[in-house]
Amino acid sequence: MDILGNLPQVLFSGLAAGSVYALVALAMVIIYRTTEVLNFAQGDMAMMSTYVGLGLLVAGGLPFFWAMLGALAFAAALGAFSEFAFLRRAKEPTVLGLIIITLGIEMIVFGFASWKWGGDPRDLPTPLSPADVVVIGGVIMSYLELATIAISATTISALFLFLNRSKAGLAMRATQQNRAVARLMGIRVRRVEMGAWALAAVIGGIAGLLVGPATTVEPYMMWDPMMKGFAAAVLGGMTSLAGAALGGAIIGIIENLFGFYVSTAFKSVVPFAAILLMLAIKPSGLLARHYVKKV
């Protein structure tokens, strides 16, 4: 077997996996930058949205596109509700307290999904089967992988446009930098924070809908992508959107390289080794700017 000849194939599969990690990482970074909270419920909120999409598609009999749109609408509502119902209730919150609240949300969502839908893995039928492939330059690309990369890239671009060009995006960035002064500008910061949670949940939800068809839909489906996405966010510096996207791609690729050339058994460990290395060499992350926070 030609070792180097397989390299493009390994890189491509890594990129497909990495683009999902990038979405999870972006979702975490959006919430972290707005509220300094690490949302550990991100993965399971996405899992629940995927179940809702599956329900709309199979039980509800909706066309694929509308079912997926419904799942994302549910994700937005779930994100906004979590912020409104749980995080906002904390009186004089500490960041640690809020992070514990997200762990609580994670347990509630996971418990609810296990009880409602059971632990059996289910298939999410898509118009794009993993078996349909196209071969370009000797690299076998499934339609699903291509769609995953395309949808991620589109989502990431749309997110960048939204944050950098729209008035709401500007308000979000202002709130991130100085909440009190943002209020002085007349920005309703609580709505902005709720919007950030909704936005993050939608982006996480897209990741869930991309993971679903590639694996199976089950309560544990998002644990691995969630951890890898978290790793990607740390690698990118936690506050940088571009860093999170890049981190996702890097983690997906090195994980696949290691899996192919060294050992599949320890494939999942590699991203964390990469983080340890990163934290030892450049703790602020790949693309994090030096951000002086006023105390």
Binding site: L170, A171, A174, Q177, V181
Partner: peptide, 13 residues
């Protein structure tokens, strides 16, 4: 807002 441009600071006003 340190990490917004001068123009963005004025717009947010």
């Amino acid at each position: 807002f340190r990490e917004l441009t001068v123009m963005e600071n004025l717009k947010i006003g």
